[in-house]
Design a binder for these strands. Structure first.
Lengths: 189, 189
DNA sequence: CATAAAAACTAACGATCGTTAGTTTCGATT
DNA sequence: AATCGAAACTAACGATCGTTAGTTTTTATG
């Protein structure tokens, strides 16, 4: 089954927005990359903001599904963390351009979508916090400032989109393993 | 000594670009926030891009000076890392809006400035790598993938601009200490 | 108070933006 | 071959963009 024209547009737009940002990418730019006129895009999408909404909310749902799945199944906290990181990194690397837009351009959503996006983000962060609390309850993790720890973990994961190259030396799974190791044990010998 | 009009404009612009991005903030927006007309801005700055250049390169120089100072003085690797993180976090929190623009909007620089900025960024990252190598040579740190470790450390630090509030519960020094602890020892008990 | 520089103003330029209206072409189904 | 919807097109709209030119006001200096 071939890709719908709409999804082709979304992918092209995401790639361009990764380089130039949301406001730096015009409908005419996107159309040119698709070898069509700007007006023709409107046969497939309702407007420019829909590109951003689709990208941000589509990925938000994927991330949330990933962590829900991890949390539903029983693992101890270390296993949960391992799997959550793995899920996150795999989604990031499988949707690299979209993830980049997701992470950097969501601020350009207009209300009420921006607020709704922040709400989903908070929900996702909270799922990570629950894992850290589990770890502390089980005596596996130190007592930590949850908010601080969650944000630090998420930042390490999200920064992967800045440097990951599909043809580079590390697979997504290897990245997830290194990240988990770093998060759990740090640098010290 | 009171602040120059130029610096007032830069600070207002940075604050607005933090919310709306570089392309999302117009010269007329900036002027309105300064209670003046857009054309009047040009008595103080040469154009919109100069705001971005000044912000990005001004901060880049501060960050580099910070780590150079740390590396000049003799410390062992753990001390160097502690001081480098402290310097970075203090600069971030002292220049919160500018740092946000520095981290998120540098892509909007036109060549050759974008390339020059990337070069400075690489130089800064390299200074951190040297610290990690020192640590390994001294037997203090694990053998690590330097590139990966540096990017992960930088991401944890940079993400602070996303959530830090001056009136929040943590001082910059406390944040730096928690970050260093996290980087060195991780979550595990 | 005269003067000159600094810093504001009004007005407008050409360019580009997202989007709409209306029309034509393409491609699959009868 | 006729038909009809999908998907492209041309043309243009009003808005806004960064910036410039020329002028007036403000402020500091003698």
């Amino acid at each position: 089954m071939e890709q719908s024209r709409r999804n082709q547009i979304l992918e092209v737009a995401q790639k361009m927005m990764r380089d130039s940002g949301f406001h730096g990418t015009s409908m005419r730019d996107i159309a040119a990359a698709m070898n069509m006129e700007a007006a023709s895009l409107y046969n497939h999408i309702s407007g420019k903001e829909e590109i951003l909404k689709s990208t941000c909310f589509g990925l938000a749902e994927k991330f949330q599904s990933g962590i829900d799945e991890v949390n539903d199944i029983y693992f101890n906290a270390v296993e949960k963390l391992q799997m959550a990181v793995k899920s996150h990194v795999q989604l990031l690397t499988e949707n690299l351009d979209a993830s980049f837009v997701f992470i950097h351009e969501w601020r350009n959503l207009n209300e009420p979508y921006r607020a709704e996006f922040v709400h989903l983000r908070d929900k996702y962060e909270n799922a990570f916090r629950v894992i850290l609390q589990n770890g502390e309850d089980e005596g596996l993790f130190k007592e930590v400032d949850y908010k601080f720890a969650v944000l630090t973990i998420l930042s390490s994961m999200n920064w992967v989109v800045e440097w990951y190259k599909p043809d580079g030396g590390m697979t997504p799974v290897q990245i997830a393993e290194k990240l988990t190791d770093f998060i759990l044990s740090g640098l010290k010998k």
